[in-house]
Design a protein around this nucleic acid. Structure first.
Length: 491
RNA sequence: GGGCCAUUAGCUCAGUCGGUAGAGCACCUGACUUUUAAUCAGGGUGUCACAGGUUCGACUCCUGUAUGGCUCACCA
């Protein structure tokens, strides 16, 4: 079986091809034309008294047929919902009625008809006339159980959307959430910008990139792993409050929490710092949640996530001490290694103090952070783009937001010292030389930009897909991405 | 990449101890002018994921492959 050309029961497909020929020979175009839709199924049902006895013009897909000889019911599904239609020989005449009887489930039709309520109180459109707008050649998945096969649901999302109404609801929520985020930021003076998806150097995060090639320039380009370094160039250029909601691409494993392309919000505010970012994060997410869901308490996988502000704030070192009993506040790499090993961890040879602390945190603390929690004070060793903390130059003014043990946001006071930035890149290059493929590359062009002067700034990234997952109780990131990345089928 | 599991009709699924495949929906034929998972009568439409092996005989047992799911690793 191949996905685009699946073997159907030959008769089934053939029967429908024959119907198409029949239609054509009787002068009817099976793939229709413009149809001036006036009304929506859900609106007619919601406001029945206003529509009762009136003629409406609707269009959509026929999803069920219930024939009764000289009368016939059907369900018509448009984007707004589903409404029953009723065709009667007496109303339509024999030619049109015969045509109606030949319609298949899955056909798209346009209907002009009169709204009424049946004996069983179902709001229904009695068809006065109809047009075939598109013939369907393939049968829809089963009406009662829907389409369950997860593989097919992702590969043929259009079928998933047709037959599983709750799927559409999730994507409508996603749309609302993103719209609310945009609205929130625009109201506060942030400007939405677009920066390169194809970059000569994939920077701004630690991840393996996708590589592509530009023929005319004969150069390698990388799909971006983050927009960060371009957004900061805009700060140099005088933009003061910018954001971008767009795709990042990371050439890494796929899981229920990772899709190779995913959507990030990144936001930068000149003259601000990570504390401002924390305030925005907390207020943005709780405000949007309240707006879209009418509450700040959300059920995810049998747990209640409470977005009510303020959220817990905990330094990485305190968090590690709380959950492991080990104090890493000294800066001794060897001692840190011994402590980590004592906890049962394996630490790679070249790891330094900050990396060890970070690994211990990820291993023992992350899984405990269910309610929204800000973790602050990341080691400079794992934060090559963040500004050093004034109180402790081994740490940075940075936070990550954890919800349901997932990293949802990452923010820091941006490093605007070009000399320090160059040293950080050099340190990253050392790590790269030691085999860390994800260590940051030297970006001379970016350092040059900083040398012209970048205002102190706060920067923030929020993983939109994961946020949508939590807010819509989706078990997999693929449930919130319309067309998730799938292996192509060979057979 | 490792482990576990799955793959049977268009869809959702059953299939006993190894004896050559079956149910609902969909589809086809007919009946039926207010049904709604319409109903009634009749019809099975299949390369049992793919390729080998064992066997008199394989959907079933074995090996490999493909795809997917979960999970671990990876993903600061």
């Amino acid at each position: 079986m191949s996905d685009g050309n699946r073997e159907e029961s030959p008769d089934l497909f053939k029967v429908r091809l024959e119907k198409i020929e029949e239609l054509r020979s009787s002068g009817i175009d099976p793939f229709g034309k413009r149809f001036p839709v006036q009304d929506q199924a859900a609106e007619i049902i919601a406001d029945f008294p206003a529509y009762d006895g009136e003629e409406v013009t609707i269009a959509g897909r026929l999803t069920a047929k219930r024939g009764h000889g000289k009368a016939s019911f059907g369900d018509l599904q448009d984007f707004s919902g589903r409404i029953q239609v009723y065709a009667r020989l007496n109303d339509l005449g024999s030619d049109a009625y015969e045509l109606y009887k030949k319609l298949d489930i899955g056909d798209i039709i346009g209907v002009r008809g009169t709204v009424f309520r049946t004996r069983k109180q179902e709001i229904t459109v009695a068809i006065n006339s109809f047009e075939i707008l598109s013939k369907s050649l393939r049968p829809l998945p089963e009406k009662w159980h829907g389409l369950k096969d997860i593989d097919l649901r992702y590969r043929q999302r259009y079928l998933d959307l047709i037959v599983n109404p709750e799927v559409k609801e999730v994507f409508l929520k996603r749309i609302e959430i993103i719209r609310a985020i945009r609205h929130y930021l625009e109201e506060r003076g942030f400007l939405e910008v677009e920066t390169p998806m194809m970059q000569p150097l994939a920077g701004g995060a630690a991840a393996r990139p996708f590589i592509t090639h530009h023929n005319a320039l004969d150069m390698e380009l990388y799909l971006r792993i983050a927009p960060e370094l371009y957004l900061k160039r805009l700060l140099v250029g005088g933009f003061e409050k910018v954001f971008e909601i767009n795709r990042n691409f990371r050439n890494e494993g796929i899981s229920t929490k990772h899709n190779p392309e995913f959507t990030m919000l990144e936001l930068y505010q000149a003259y601000g710092d990570y504390q401002d970012m924390m305030a925005i994060t907390e207020d943005l997410i709780s405000t949007v949640t309240q707006q879209v869901f009418g509450t700040t308490k959300i059920e995810y996988d049998d747990q209640e996530i409470d977005f009510t502000v303020p959220w817990t704030r905990l330094s990485m070192m305190d968090a590690v001490e709380r959950y492991t009993g080990q104090d890493f506040s000294h800066l001794d790499t060897e001692r840190a290694r011994r402590q980590a090993v004592e906890l049962g961890m394996e630490i790679s040879a070249g790891a330094v103090w900050g990396q060890i602390l970070n690994e211990v945190f990820e291993t023992y603390v992350e899984e405990k952070l269910i309610q929204p929690t800000f973790i602050t004070g990341h080691p400079v060793d794992v934060s090559p783009l963040a500004k050093r903390s004034q109180e402790n130059p081994s740490l940075t003014d940075r936070f990550e937001l954890f919800i349901n043990s997932w990293e949802l946001a990452n923010a820091f006071t941006e490093l605007n010292d070009p000399l320090d930035q160059r040293k950080r890149f050099e340190q990253q290059m050392d790590e790269r030389a030691r085999g860390d493929e994800e260590a940051h590359a030297m970006d001379e062009d970016f350092v040059t930009a900083l040398e012209y002067g970048m205002p102190p700034a706060g920067g923030l990234g929020i993983g939109i897909d994961r946020l949508v997952m939590i807010l819509t109780n989706a078990p997999s990131i693929r449930d919130v991405i319309l067309f998730p990345t799938m292996r192509t089928r060979e057979c």
